[in-house]
Amino acid sequence: MRASPFRSALLLAFAATVTSIAAAQTDAQKKLEQPPQLERLDDADTPITVSPNKSRETTTNVQRQNGRITQETVHAGGSTYTVKPNNATGTALPGDASGTGIRGAQWTVMEFDIAKKQKQRSADAAAAAENAEDAPPPPPPATTR
Protein backbone atom coordinates (compact mmCIF):
# COMPACT_ATOMS: atom_id res chain seq x y z
CA MET A 1 0.00 0.00 0.00
CA ARG A 2 1.24 3.38 -0.94
CA ALA A 3 1.29 6.35 1.48
CA SER A 4 -0.69 9.31 0.29
CA PRO A 5 0.96 12.72 0.17
CA PHE A 6 -1.73 14.05 2.52
CA ARG A 7 -0.81 11.52 5.23
CA SER A 8 2.87 12.29 4.95
CA ALA A 9 2.21 16.06 5.20
CA LEU A 10 0.01 15.45 8.21
CA LEU A 11 2.70 13.33 9.90
CA LEU A 12 5.34 16.00 9.25
CA ALA A 13 3.11 18.74 10.70
CA PHE A 14 2.40 16.58 13.76
CA ALA A 15 6.10 15.90 14.28
CA ALA A 16 6.94 19.61 14.01
CA THR A 17 4.26 20.48 16.55
CA VAL A 18 5.49 17.89 19.03
CA THR A 19 9.08 19.10 18.78
CA SER A 20 8.07 22.76 19.26
CA ILE A 21 6.02 21.85 22.35
CA ALA A 22 8.94 19.90 23.80
CA ALA A 23 11.30 22.82 23.16
CA ALA A 24 8.89 25.25 24.84
CA GLN A 25 8.66 22.99 27.89
CA THR A 26 12.43 22.80 28.27
CA ASP A 27 12.69 26.62 28.00
CA ALA A 28 10.05 27.01 30.70
CA GLN A 29 11.86 24.52 32.96
CA LYS A 30 15.15 26.41 32.52
CA LYS A 31 13.44 29.67 33.50
CA LEU A 32 11.96 28.05 36.62
CA GLU A 33 15.34 26.75 37.72
CA GLN A 34 16.96 30.21 37.62
CA PRO A 35 16.24 32.53 40.56
CA PRO A 36 14.57 35.81 39.60
CA GLN A 37 16.78 38.88 39.18
CA LEU A 38 16.10 41.33 42.03
CA GLU A 39 16.89 45.04 42.07
CA ARG A 40 18.27 46.81 45.11
CA LEU A 41 16.08 49.67 46.30
CA ASP A 42 17.42 52.64 48.24
CA ASP A 43 15.90 53.35 51.63
CA ALA A 44 13.65 56.39 51.68
CA ASP A 45 14.85 59.33 53.78
CA THR A 46 11.37 60.70 54.41
CA PRO A 47 9.74 59.28 57.52
CA ILE A 48 6.32 57.74 57.32
CA THR A 49 3.67 59.75 59.14
CA VAL A 50 0.38 58.22 60.11
CA SER A 51 -2.45 60.56 61.02
CA PRO A 52 -5.34 59.19 63.02
CA ASN A 53 -8.76 59.13 61.43
CA LYS A 54 -11.46 61.47 62.63
CA SER A 55 -13.17 60.12 65.67
CA ARG A 56 -15.96 57.78 64.70
CA GLU A 57 -17.80 58.23 67.96
CA THR A 58 -21.33 56.89 67.89
CA THR A 59 -24.03 58.31 70.12
CA THR A 60 -27.57 57.03 70.46
CA ASN A 61 -30.73 58.63 71.85
CA VAL A 62 -33.41 56.18 72.89
CA GLN A 63 -37.04 57.26 73.39
CA ARG A 64 -39.26 54.96 75.45
CA GLN A 65 -42.96 54.94 76.13
CA ASN A 66 -44.33 52.65 78.85
CA GLY A 67 -41.05 50.74 78.89
CA ARG A 68 -41.09 49.99 75.15
CA ILE A 69 -38.64 51.58 72.74
CA THR A 70 -40.52 53.86 70.34
CA GLN A 71 -37.59 55.44 68.54
CA GLU A 72 -33.80 55.34 68.52
CA THR A 73 -31.68 58.05 66.88
CA VAL A 74 -28.06 57.23 66.04
CA HIS A 75 -25.34 59.82 65.30
CA ALA A 76 -22.38 58.01 63.72
CA GLY A 77 -19.58 60.03 62.16
CA GLY A 78 -21.23 62.69 60.02
CA SER A 79 -24.52 60.88 59.46
CA THR A 80 -27.70 60.58 61.47
CA TYR A 81 -30.44 58.00 61.17
CA THR A 82 -33.56 57.01 63.09
CA VAL A 83 -34.79 53.47 63.70
CA LYS A 84 -38.37 52.74 64.77
CA PRO A 85 -39.89 49.38 65.68
CA ASN A 86 -42.19 47.66 63.23
CA ASN A 87 -45.46 47.60 65.15
CA ALA A 88 -48.27 45.72 63.50
CA THR A 89 -51.57 47.58 63.25
CA GLY A 90 -54.86 45.86 64.00
CA THR A 91 -54.84 42.08 64.01
CA ALA A 92 -52.07 41.70 61.42
CA LEU A 93 -49.12 39.60 62.48
CA PRO A 94 -45.58 39.88 61.13
CA GLY A 95 -45.33 37.73 58.01
CA ASP A 96 -49.03 37.95 57.14
CA ALA A 97 -50.09 39.27 53.77
CA SER A 98 -51.76 42.26 55.45
CA GLY A 99 -48.87 42.73 57.87
CA THR A 100 -45.88 44.90 57.16
CA GLY A 101 -42.37 43.72 56.41
CA ILE A 102 -39.13 45.01 57.81
CA ARG A 103 -39.03 48.70 58.63
CA GLY A 104 -35.87 50.39 57.38
CA ALA A 105 -33.88 53.18 58.94
CA GLN A 106 -34.78 56.80 58.17
CA TRP A 107 -31.69 58.81 57.26
CA THR A 108 -31.57 62.49 58.15
CA VAL A 109 -30.47 64.23 54.97
CA MET A 110 -30.63 67.95 55.76
CA GLU A 111 -31.54 69.86 58.91
CA PHE A 112 -32.52 73.49 59.06
CA ASP A 113 -32.00 75.58 62.21
CA ILE A 114 -34.20 78.65 61.72
CA ALA A 115 -33.63 79.94 65.27
CA LYS A 116 -29.87 79.98 64.66
CA LYS A 117 -30.36 82.08 61.50
CA GLN A 118 -32.60 84.54 63.38
CA LYS A 119 -30.01 84.89 66.16
CA GLN A 120 -27.31 85.49 63.53
CA ARG A 121 -29.43 88.17 61.85
CA SER A 122 -30.09 89.97 65.14
CA ALA A 123 -26.36 89.82 66.00
CA ASP A 124 -25.51 91.23 62.55
CA ALA A 125 -28.08 94.01 62.98
CA ALA A 126 -26.66 94.91 66.41
CA ALA A 127 -23.12 95.02 64.98
CA ALA A 128 -24.32 97.21 62.11
CA ALA A 129 -26.03 99.58 64.58
CA GLU A 130 -22.81 99.90 66.60
CA ASN A 131 -20.84 100.63 63.45
CA ALA A 132 -23.45 103.19 62.36
CA GLU A 133 -23.07 105.13 65.66
CA ASP A 134 -19.30 105.42 65.18
CA ALA A 135 -19.57 106.58 61.56
CA PRO A 136 -19.88 110.31 60.76
CA PRO A 137 -23.29 111.47 59.57
CA PRO A 138 -23.88 111.44 55.82
CA PRO A 139 -23.48 114.75 53.97
CA PRO A 140 -26.63 116.73 53.20
CA PRO A 141 -28.10 116.29 49.73
CA ALA A 142 -26.88 118.74 47.12
CA THR A 143 -29.42 121.25 45.87
CA THR A 144 -29.52 122.37 42.30
CA ARG A 145 -30.89 125.75 41.20
Rank of each mutant, 00 (worst) to 15 (best):
A3Q: 06
A3K: 08
S4N: 08
S8G: 12
L12P: 11
A15S: 10
T17Y: 12
T19R: 08
I21N: 06
A23W: 01
A23P: 02
Q29M: 02
K31R: 15
Q34C: 04
P36R: 09
E39K: 14
D42W: 04
A44L: 11
A44I: 08
D45F: 13
D45Q: 11
D45P: 11
P47Q: 08
I48T: 09
T49H: 05
V50D: 07
V50Y: 10
K54C: 03
T58W: 03
T58D: 05
V62N: 01
Q63M: 11
N66H: 12
G67P: 11
G67N: 09
T70N: 10
Q71V: 11
T73G: 12
T82N: 06
T82D: 05
V83H: 00
P85W: 00
N87D: 02
T89R: 05
G90Y: 02
P94H: 09
P94T: 08
G95T: 04
G104D: 02
Q106C: 08
Q106T: 07
E111I: 05
F112Q: 15
D113L: 02
I114L: 14
Q118K: 10
S122L: 13
D124V: 15
A128S: 01
E130T: 05
E130P: 04
A132E: 05
P139S: 09
P140T: 13
P141M: 06
